[in-house]
């Protein structure tokens, strides 16, 4: 009986919480929140009609794209390839949530932060290939631009994530340890504590800039630059392929911001489980608000400027933070 229950729990983890369903709902609710926030910033109302205060608008959009709109296949779009790519990305992101200590059942191993980086890398690969898989020049440009940026922001994200986890869980380098029992809150010498905080701050700055570029928020929305390449990697997509691509994008934003918020502001391990999840969500929305407000008070950079900016500040800071985290 026991293996069956374990198996069912695993399925539940992957598909419902904190896997696919939870990520989808979180992603779409945050899309609504983001849209509302940007709208208020821009002197508009934002989503209003579907559900209370328009909260169901993103769900309605995705539902319509998935089940009502037609998947147009033509010479320019290998639709099936794109569907497979999107599903690959979403599955990889859902699978990586199993490493987060959100339920009693989570996978924990030493150095599992590397597994997380590996799994989430698939989402970026998928997004880049969605563009490159199309024959049309607009998605092609989008795909090439994303793939070029990926060469810089992925190392930054990996390095700063490892240095943050190294500070929070020095012995195991496990994400679960870093999130549930952060080492920074344990008693330690003041000097060491100062160095740890400095490492976290440096890593957080580099991580957040790289995160803006990974999730294609401004000023790094170069792969989808609407006024240059007409929507970039999404330009030739329609119906379910477009819906799932949007979903993949939202899920990626949510997962990364969720992880970032919880690494940045550690929770003391004494809190009971439900309360700590509420706390996590509050932190998530705070960090999301800051990121969105920063992003939408900027324009878009050019590809070469963005690469230069990414190499100059975040890459350098992340390497310094990594060095600090391993020496102290």
């Amino acid at each position: 009986m026991e293996p069956l229950i374990e198996f069912l729990k695993l399925i539940f983890t992957a598909l419902v919480y904190p896997g696919l369903a939870f990520l989808t709902i979180l992603g779409l609710v945050s899309q609504w929140y983001r849209r509302k926030l940007i709208a208020r910033l821009q002197n508009r109302v934002g989503p209003k009609y579907v559900g209370p205060a328009g909260i169901l608008q993103p769900f309605a959009d995705i539902y319509k794209l998935l089940f009502v709109k037609e998947l147009v296949t033509g010479a320019y779009t290998p639709a099936r390839l794109i569907l497979y790519l999107v599903i690959l990305g979403i599955v990889a992101l859902s699978a990586s949530t199993a490493l987060l200590p959100l339920t009693p059942l989570y996978i924990r191993a030493e150095y599992d932060v590397l597994v997380f980086i590996y799994l989430t890398f698939y989402a970026s690969i998928a997004m880049s290939l969605i563009g490159l898989g199309s024959v049309s020049p607009y998605p092609g440009f989008g795909g090439v631009r994303y793939a070029t940026m990926l060469l810089v922001f992925e190392p930054v994200i990996a390095i700063s994530l490892i240095s943050m986890v190294k500070v929070l869980a020095p012995n195991t380098l496990s994400l679960a340890d870093a999130l549930s029992n952060p080492g920074i809150l344990r008693a330690q010498q003041p000097l060491q504590w100062i160095f740890h905080v400095a490492t976290i701050i440096l890593a957080a700055i580099s991580f957040s800039i790289a995160l803006l570029s990974k999730t294609m928020l401004k000023p790094f929305d170069i792969p989808e630059a609407e006024t240059e390449i007409a929507g970039g990697y999404l330009a030739e997509l329609s119906g379910p392929a477009l819906g799932l691509s949007i979903l993949l994008h939202e899920v990626e934003i949510s997962l990364y911001v969720f992880l970032f918020a919880n690494l940045l502001i550690p929770i003391p391990p004494i809190l009971p489980a439900p309360l700590s999840i509420v706390m996590s969500l509050i932190k998530y929305f705070i960090v999301l608000t800051i990121l969105v407000l920063v992003a939408y008070s900027m324009g878009r950079l050019k590809l070469d400027q963005a690469l230069r900016a990414l190499i100059k500040v975040p890459l350098l800071l992340s390497i310094i933070s990594l060095a600090l985290s391993f020496t102290i």
Binding site: L41, Q42, R44, K218, P219, A225, E226, T227, G299, R300
Partner: peptide
């Protein structure tokens, strides 16, 4: 111009 460089917020405020 603000819209073309992706600065949507500035676009909205200027139009207002």
């Amino acid at each position: 111009m603000a819209e073309i460089i992706g600065f949507d917020t500035l676009f909205m405020l200027l139009m207002r």
